[in-house]
Design a protein around this nucleic acid. Structure first.
Ligand SMILES: NC(=O)c1ccc[n+]([C@@H]2O[C@H](COP(=O)([O-])OP(=O)(O)OC[C@H]3O[C@@H](n4cnc5c(N)ncnc54)[C@H](O)[C@@H]3O)[C@@H](O)[C@H]2O)c1
Ligand SMILES: NC(=O)c1ccc[n+]([C@@H]2O[C@H](COP(=O)([O-])OP(=O)(O)OC[C@H]3O[C@@H](n4cnc5c(N)ncnc54)[C@H](O)[C@@H]3O)[C@@H](O)[C@H]2O)c1
Lengths: 233, 233
DNA sequence: ACGCCCTTGTGAAAGTACGCACAAAGTAGG
DNA sequence: CCTACTTTGTGCGTACTTTCACAAGGGCGT
């Protein structure tokens, strides 16, 4: 029934796997720099902080790139994961809201290192527009549509106050942006074809507080036994 | 077999639910400010961007706080969620690494508004130590143990470069901190009793890139059908 | 060329999460 | 008090995720 052209691979990578691939990629790039040629699932999993079976299953979604008895070729795996994640091409990013956070993001080196190019900064405040931040001149938010079109922006970052976030988001979407990274503490409403990911500091702290309270509740913990060691995204 | 005292409620709240409670809480607080007295699961769910059945099931983990035919009392629900998340008490936070990001965090108002008090800022750079940021004097990282003890810090935020993160984390843990929020792009190693949550910009962008590539792959999408509308944390 | 040993790739089981659909419970109006 | 209507709380089927455990594959030493 699927009218899709018969692609080499299934291409139905689970979301949970996608979220871990960048972690593996980072670990592998570190190894590559240090000259490591191959790595076993056990070792890589340990560095990435996951179960080795999970790692193998994750990688199996990309194909059979390992060699039994040996492990995975580091460089090859870096390439395959990069390709799968779409990092073999460059992506153009625009940031809206050049305040505390927007400036930190713009000045963040690790942003551009891996195929993400910041093409534009927008703000609504006339006192900020025209400033040079991280080598870019801050533009007025009203030029968003023009710039997104001319620069080919594909990812929009929202670092405005919460009240402005939905409006800015709508403009990004209207201008054709289909991926949004939102730092404002609001739930954005977008059409189904647009992906939104949010980074919400306050939520993270509240989740930590919840677990912290749990630990305290048990008072003097008779026995440890918290199974929370590893990170959950 | 569970030797725990028979608590009023089960207290086995799913992690997925815990991650959504702060979203509900924020929506409810907004309503409370606007004077709304009660809300139905349908309305609240719509604002929070989730399915109403999911919302009801989430809330049912806290107890039966709704009234059939009417909905939920906004103020009461705010209180119950706050209590469950541990927000009825104050939490003390310390930030290590006062660079681009650390400063943005320290200056962020929304941080302190809901029970999270920033008690200390640490840095290793002598040029930064002694600066006043957001009303606090930046202390040297070597005073971490003393300050964490005297201030009763329970949540440590890591905003140092990646190479320093594990070391700083170890010091937090050694000093008794059992909750860590990590902004550095590394997997932290901690004992099982310590909770770590990470915020990783680069990973978020890579996940967006993956989906963006998918959309482009299908070229002129014959039929839409992306089921990605809602946000995934 | 052979066999040992290591590591992958993957079935199957167990554990979580989601969302539909509906009975139960409560309100409001007569 | 009884009926009609609204909305909660949850049982249940489905889908996704994680983990175990092991057969099959492949290199390497002899
Ligand atoms: N600073 C942090 O560490 C931090 C942490 C977590 C979340 N956040 C969230 O990130 C967002 C930004 O935080 P911040 O501290 O940088 O705030 P900020 O006030 O320092 O900066 C916001 C900037 O957005 C601009 N702006 C306002 N309306 C705009 C519009 N319609 N279009 C374009 N620009 C507009 C303002 O002029 C300002 O420069 C907020 O939603 C905040 O809740 C910040
Ligand atoms: N800036 C961003 O927008 C951004 C975004 C995502 C992730 N990050 C990550 O957050 C971290 C901080 O980023 P940044 O842009 O603020 O970097 P930065 O270089 O501006 O600041 C880092 C600060 O940490 C201090 N430091 C170094 N070693 C330390 C130690 N052992 N103890 C205490 N302090 C120490 C440095 O003196 C510096 O002041 C990095 O790991 C970065 O990858 C930053």
């Amino acid at each position: 029934m699927t009218p899709r052209s018969p692609r080499p691979r299934d291409r139905g990578i689970p979301e949970a796997t996608v979220a871990r691939l960048p972690v593996y990629l980072r670990a592998l790039q570190g190894m590559a720099e240090r000259g490591t040629l191959t790595v076993s699932s056990e070792d890589l999993a340990s560095i990435a902080g996951v179960n080795s079976a999970k790692l193998r299953k994750d990688l199996s979604h990309l194909g059979s790139y390992g060699t039994r008895g040996v492990g995975y070729d580091v460089d090859y795996l870096v390439y395959q994961i990069s390709r799968e994640l779409g990092l073999t091409q460059d992506w153009t990013v625009a940031i809206a809201g050049v305040g505390n956070l927007g400036r930190a993001l713009a000045n963040y080196g690790g942003f551009g290192t891996r195929g993400f190019r910041i093409a534009a900064l927008f703000d609504a405040d006339r006192r900020v527009v025209g400033d040079e931040v991280a080598g870019l001149v801050v533009r007025h938010i009203d030029t968003l549509e023009d710039v997104v079109g001319s620069e080919g922006v594909s990812i929009g970052v929202i670092a405005t106050p919460a009240v402005s976030a939905q409006g800015v988001c709508d403009r990004f979407v209207e201008a054709g942006v289909t991926s949004v990274l939102n730092f404002a503490p609001v739930v954005l409403n977008v059409p189904p074809a647009v992906d939104v990911r949010k980074v919400d500091l306050s939520i993270e702290l509240q989740i930590l507080a919840f677990h912290e309270q749990r630990k305290a509740d048990g008072q003097a913990p008779p026995e440890a036994g918290w199974i929370d060691a590893t990170e959950k995204t």
